Computed example of a mutant assay.
Amino acid sequence: MFGRQSANGGGRGPQFPSIPRRRMELTRSYAPDWILVIVITGCFYFLDSIHGYWREFSLTEPSIQHTFTEKERVPNWMLGVLALVLPAVLMPVINAMTIRSWWDWHNSWLGLLLSLSLTAVLTQTVKVTVGRPRPDLIARCQPKQGSQDTSPYGLVTASICTQTDMSKLKDGFRSFWSGHSSLSFAGLGFLSWYLAGKLRVFDRKGHTFKSFLAIAPLTGAMLVAISRTMDYRHHWHDVLVGSTVGLLLSFFAYHQYYPSLASSYSHSPFSPRIYPDELRIHRHAPSSVPLIGGYMDHTPDVEGGSGYDHEREGPVPPVTVPRDAGSEPVPLHHIGQQ
């Protein structure tokens, strides 16, 4: 797709990367990101296997005397479907209905995994270090007959428990903060930001229907969070903090790959980070066709264009690259994916 052309039309100018080479550059640049989110996810399962800290508790504390719910309203497998599978399926569909970009597909999945992996590891780290008793701890513990709070402070340890299922007892000290709440908001929250960007909800024109669509995933996450108090798995504080953390991390992850929702270009992902190096060749290529599309938050060193200006928001200006006769302009976020 990219050929050679001289400044006067008869010589030979700089050679631009071919599509296969472009793909290889993109792979080398973003493979570490994919590997890292997978490694971070593995850390979550490692943290889940350790013993962790178990706090002292009182046998007369009403907040931990609730019934142990055998069948949860949202079990772990369903949480995985809602927080991971559902957004991963819906975002390519939304992509196909809007900008139809392979690069957007890549960024949406990578951003989703970043949101979930960060939330999972941070949540599990806090759980195993805080060691807060769940509302159903005493039912899990099954204290020895005749057990009483010790004096003078009225607290006991897990040594009074007769529970033989150690995984069940260990999980009883992982109330803060709620993992279901944080992960549901991390996954469905990312989907909500994605929808808001694609629908351009914040374009200052007012869209009631679009607003309802964008907020729908957050409603689902909220119901998942509420179910944790209904099953007596968490105190309300655990759910509130977990939901807040998940939503904030989804917002953070989303903006690693997409511009502000208030931007006129909120529907487009950021350009590939290897883009500027290729633009630098442009200064030596006066005979050309436009390279269309993309959105950058940095300024490439090229003649005739300043990229994205933080003070004056805007798209990447038309940039030109040499081509062979008959070739077509290539959208920036499609390069290497055709």
Rank of each mutant, 00 (worst) to 15 (best):
V37S: 14
H51W: 12
E61S: 01
S175F: 11
D297C: 08
E56L: 07
P315K: 08
L247E: 05
W102C: 08
G246Y: 06
L86A: 15
E328C: 10
D203L: 01
V74D: 07
A225S: 15
G52F: 11
W109Y: 08
I292Y: 10
L79P: 02
M222L: 15
Q338G: 04
H334F: 05
S288I: 04
D297P: 00
P331Q: 14
G42W: 01
L113K: 02
I281H: 04
V239P: 07
I138Q: 12
T67V: 05
V128M: 12
T123D: 03
I138L: 15
A253F: 05
G220K: 08
W102T: 10
E56H: 07
Y275F: 15
H333F: 00
R23H: 04
I335D: 13
A120Y: 04
G242E: 10
W236R: 02
Y232L: 05
S192L: 07
P259S: 08
I99Y: 02
G305W: 02
Y258P: 06
I50C: 00
D203E: 04
H237E: 04
G11P: 00
H234K: 06
Y53H: 15
K144V: 12
I99A: 04
Q148T: 09
Q337L: 14
A225Y: 03
S159C: 03
P75Y: 10
T69P: 03
R204S: 15
D149W: 08
G52A: 13
C141Q: 08
T123M: 03
T164E: 13
D238C: 09
W77G: 00
V89Q: 06
A196W: 15
D171T: 03
I226Y: 13
R174T: 10
I281G: 01
V85F: 14
G220P: 03
P272V: 00
Q142H: 14
V245M: 10
A7Q: 02
F2R: 09
D277K: 04
R273E: 11
L26R: 06
T299S: 14
Q15V: 11
Q142P: 02
P133F: 01
L82D: 05
T27P: 00
G206L: 07
H310K: 09
H255N: 13
L110P: 02
I35R: 09
I38A: 15
M97Q: 08
S108T: 11
A325D: 01
S192P: 09
T123E: 05
M222H: 09
A158N: 08
F57G: 11
R22A: 13
P318E: 11
I292S: 12
